[in-house]
């Protein structure tokens, strides 16, 4: 597979995951606003922006809401949902011949929808966000059932897993910093919001009942081996995808990137929540984030931007 193609598939997938994550987080936030004290609005919006890792150096008092709003349909912001969909579509356009026609058509349809929504001002934000979620889910289903589960598909999996692991780490970090170990005990509403932002509320209740306890929430969202929106699950998926890519390309050069993904997976697989909580949750999440970025760079150096001399020697 062409390096450029692998790169485009990887980013297409990351951008779609980002769009879906952003849509979900905003949707939960809008829902929570209905039940909160209005004077705290600004604080909540700011926290949400932070949890999405959106730069907000110049947000003035009382304007956080507007900034969050622009996260939906401002083409000026690169983190906005519409920008992510456009970037995903642009990446897939570059590799049209590599993905199935059905995938392209679905992504193109989403693009046409968000562009139309942008033109007419979204009348019902909730519907719009729901449509983004459903659109990306549909795209994922189409991808799984119409594309060969070969190298290209594995790069798509790698992109999504890496993006998800990083996004979850950021989201958890921001929430726990604000609500855990401080004097002000947060309302159960905030913990529910966190779980909902990861589509984890129902799954959590099945595992631990509706008794919302921070350490259990952390354990579930970080270490659950079977829940798709946990960091552990994403790390597993990332490792599997990279191993499969390595097997496909039969190149010794793949060892490094597999080692990095394997180490990240192992850290989570053998992690104990009580140790993590006592040893410092934030330091732990920082490590996960650092490993994500290492995996990303290693993937680039191995498959995409390798020096020509090295490749000539190897062949």
């Amino acid at each position: 597979m062409l390096s450029r193609v692998a790169e485009s598939l990887y980013w297409m997938s990351r951008y779609l995951e980002r769009a879906e994550h952003t849509a979900r987080v905003i949707r939960v936030q809008l829902n929570l606003m209905l039940e909160r004290e209005t004077e705290d609005d600004d604080r909540h919006w700011k926290r949400m922006l932070k949890s999405l890792a959106v730069e907000m150096t110049d947000v003035k008092e009382g304007e956080a809401h507007a900034v969050a709003n622009s996260l939906i349909h401002s083409t000026a912001s690169r983190s906005s949902i519409i920008s992510c969909i456009m970037a995903a579509r642009e990446n897939s356009r570059q590799v049209r011949e590599q993905i199935s026609s059905e995938m392209w058509e679905q992504l193109n349809r989403m693009f046409i929808e968000v562009k139309r929504a942008d033109a007419n001002e979204v009348s019902d934000v909730d519907d719009f966000l729901q449509a983004i979620k459903e659109g990306t889910h549909l795209f994922q289903g189409i991808t799984d059932s119409t594309m060969t589960h070969g190298e290209g598909w594995q790069f798509i999996q790698a992109g999504r897993s890496l993006e998800r692991a990083a996004a979850l780490s950021t989201l958890l970090g921001v929430h726990f910093r604000e609500f855990y170990g401080t004097d002000a005990e947060p309302e159960p509403l905030e913990w529910m919001g966190l779980l909902r932002s990861c589509t984890a509320f129902e799954a959590y209740c099945k595992a631990y009942t509706a008794d919302l306890r921070p350490d259990r929430i952390a354990e579930f969202l970080m270490l659950s081996p079977s829940f798709p929106h946990s960091i552990r699950f994403s790390a597993d998926a990332l490792e599997t995808a990279l191993k499969q890519v390595g097997a496909e390309v039969s190149s010794r050069r793949s060892a490094r990137v597999e080692r990095i993904a394997g180490r990240m997976q192992a850290t989570l697989a053998f992690g104990q929540i009580d140790e993590i909580m006592s040893g410092g949750l934030h330091a732990y999440l920082e490590t996960v984030l650092r490993q994500c970025s290492q995996a990303h760079s290693a993937l680039y150096q191995t498959y995409i931007t390798y020096p020509i001399e090295a490749a000539l020697q190897a062949s």
Binding site: L2, S251, I308
Partner: peptide
């Protein structure tokens, strides 16, 4: 394969394309 100029590398009067497996 659909390639762009940036995917191609000339070396010793042969043309290669840059793939995930190498050249």
């Amino acid at each position: 394969e659909l390639v762009e100029g940036r995917d191609l590398v000339a070396h010793d009067n042969f043309i290669y394309m840059r793939t995930t497996e190498g050249l």
